[in-house]
Amino acid sequence: MKNLFEKTQLGNITLKNRFVRSATWENMTTEDGHMTDELYKIYKELAKGEVGLIITGYANVVQEEQPNPGMMGIYNDSFIDEYKKLTDLVHKYDSKIVMQIAYGGTKTKYNVGQRIIFAPSEVPERGTKTLGKSMTKEEIDYIVDAFAKAGKRSKDSGFDGVEIHGAHTYLINQFLSPYYNKREDEYGGSLENRMRFLIEIYSKMREMVGRDYPILVKLTASEFFDGGLTFEETKIICKKLEELGVDGIEISGNIHGKAKSMVGQSFDGYEIKKEGYFFEYGNIISNEVDIPIITVGGLTNINNIEKILNETNIDFFAISRPLLTEPNLIKRWKDGNKEPVKCVRCSKCRTANGNYCTIFNK
């Protein structure tokens, strides 16, 4: 019987348990993305709270592209020393930490009109209605290079690995999506072409960080609407990433804040679950690839998580909002208090003064 609190491997990262803090935008950096005392404190509390692997809030790979205020940056070498302080702090408590890097693209309403926002094609993002600039080949190469350099900076900063954000309608996801990607060059049309941008990012990053440095990818299980990326396509992408040498895949959804209302609905033949929204999708993928799969979304009850662990091939369980409410949640569960999470998933944690629980931590 598998145990949630046993040592496990994710690539060459040895983790003390199977719990992951999924990337959570904290909105607490300086204006240009640098660390603050408040942010160091958050990560210290997570590490003290026995989270096995912490994935940072997403960090922008080019300075001019900031989809949200207060988000971390990794767009030049000025971040390396302060991130060394961060990684040393987390390692002191025997937790591991991975930097998530992203290009947000049109999934934003922040400073729209004041900057150029890249997109694969001129198709407005369904939620924000933001329209981006269809990228030239030179601009694609520029962003590929920026991702790769951000991966190298993550390694130089002492992070245990890096996660490429390819989900949630951010730029990489849009290249993968037939709805957003209407290109007629080598980056559009067939799934093979739509994968090219992600594969180029991964391949160039791998050249820069070396074979042994863990690279994870976060993907959308399905776009959950007609004409979008399907689960069948996502399975093919996962198999290709395994073939290329990706160390692990986090399977999420593409329905920010809506998953709870969609529980019980089926897409691509599988159901969004009340406990672990997307774990059915993750389980199918875990049976088709031989690299670790992380499931994220709607995990609230340790007994149910343990059941999923022992009835599927999913290896890791990522939690976000409940850790805003209880940064010591994993330690609480480990110490024997197995009450479900306090978080009520009200999404009121996003405030102008930073993202924190406004219900229990006023």
Rank of each mutant, 00 (worst) to 15 (best):
7 K>P: 03
25 W>Q: 01
6 E>W: 09
16 K>S: 12
57 G>S: 13
43 Y>D: 01
263 V>G: 03
116 I>P: 00
12 N>E: 12
240 K>C: 04
25 W>S: 01
161 G>V: 09
173 N>W: 07
333 W>L: 03
258 K>T: 12
113 G>W: 06
16 K>R: 15
356 Y>P: 00
26 E>F: 15
154 S>A: 14
260 K>D: 12
208 M>D: 08
217 V>P: 00
75 Y>C: 09
289 V>E: 01
97 I>N: 00
302 I>H: 01
186 E>D: 15
196 R>C: 13
57 G>Y: 10
148 A>L: 12
184 E>S: 15
95 S>T: 12
78 S>R: 04
343 C>E: 09
31 E>M: 12
200 E>T: 05
236 I>L: 11
362 K>Q: 15
135 M>N: 07
288 E>I: 05
326 E>M: 11
288 E>F: 02
137 K>C: 07
11 G>W: 06
36 T>I: 13
126 R>M: 14
106 T>M: 05
261 S>P: 07
32 D>I: 14
116 I>K: 15
152 K>F: 13
72 M>G: 01
252 S>R: 11
183 R>A: 07
260 K>V: 10
18 R>P: 04
339 E>H: 02
128 T>L: 05
105 G>W: 12
182 K>T: 13
63 Q>T: 10
274 K>W: 05
246 V>E: 00
217 V>G: 03
31 E>K: 14
62 V>H: 02
285 I>N: 04
184 E>Y: 09
234 T>L: 04
352 A>D: 08
348 K>Q: 13
227 G>Q: 06
285 I>E: 05
254 N>M: 15
248 G>R: 02
362 K>D: 14
